[in-house]
Amino acid sequence: MFWSLLKHRVPSLAVALMLCAGCGDSLRTSVGGRITRADGSPLIGATVTVRSDATGKWARGVTDADGAFQLGGATADEGIEPGEYYVTITEERGDMGQLPATIPARYAKRTASGIALTVAAGESQELILQLDPT
């Protein structure tokens, strides 16, 4: 009898799950931007990470040849949830860090970067940064 009842309930459950499949993503906001060094040259191949102290949620993007990036979590360009975030920026410096740094190390530290981001629901944002040389 259990299997008979379950057989009739499964289609309803499947429809309910399909309807809610995208429910959690409706608040995600598109956030992108561009990062340049103090001299105006684009920061290429750098990782931009935003993280929320309140929720622990994070998103990441990598700058392209123009210094442009889009934030996402598991999938690039998926956006982020509304909230307050701190921003860190790290450069790709080779496997052993053998390439010289072109931006100050403070941008890689949460407490020292000095960059914050507030994201509101449904509001696309563009973060334009020109990094300080010191």
Rank of each mutant, 00 (worst) to 15 (best):
I128P: 00
K57T: 10
A76L: 12
V119S: 10
G33P: 02
L43E: 00
D132A: 01
A121E: 13
G94M: 03
G45H: 04
C20Q: 14
L19H: 04
G97S: 07
E84V: 03
L127E: 06
K7A: 15
A16L: 13
G32S: 09
A121I: 06
Y85F: 10
L131Q: 12
S4L: 06
A108R: 13
L99I: 01
M18V: 09
Y86D: 10
G24V: 12
M96W: 14
T29P: 03
R51H: 06
A38V: 02
I80R: 09
P100I: 09
L27S: 13
P11A: 04
W58Q: 15
F2R: 03
D25A: 14
E81D: 14
A120S: 13
E92I: 02
G122Q: 06
L117E: 09
E84C: 00
P100S: 07
L99G: 00
M18S: 14
G73C: 09
Q125G: 13
P104R: 07
A112L: 15
A74Y: 13
S41E: 15
I115K: 02
R106F: 03
I80H: 10
E78R: 02
E92T: 11
A112D: 15
V87T: 01
A112I: 01
R37P: 02
P42D: 11
T55Q: 08
L17S: 11
A65R: 15
L117K: 09
D95R: 13
G33H: 03
H8F: 05
D53W: 04
C20Y: 08
P82I: 11
T47F: 05
S26V: 15
T118Q: 15
P82N: 09
D66A: 05
R93F: 05
P133I: 02
R28S: 04
A121K: 15
F69T: 02
T111L: 09
L131P: 05
C20R: 14
Y107A: 02
S124E: 11
A54R: 14
K109F: 05
G56Q: 13
E91P: 08
T90F: 00
V50C: 11
K109P: 01
F2E: 05
Y107F: 15
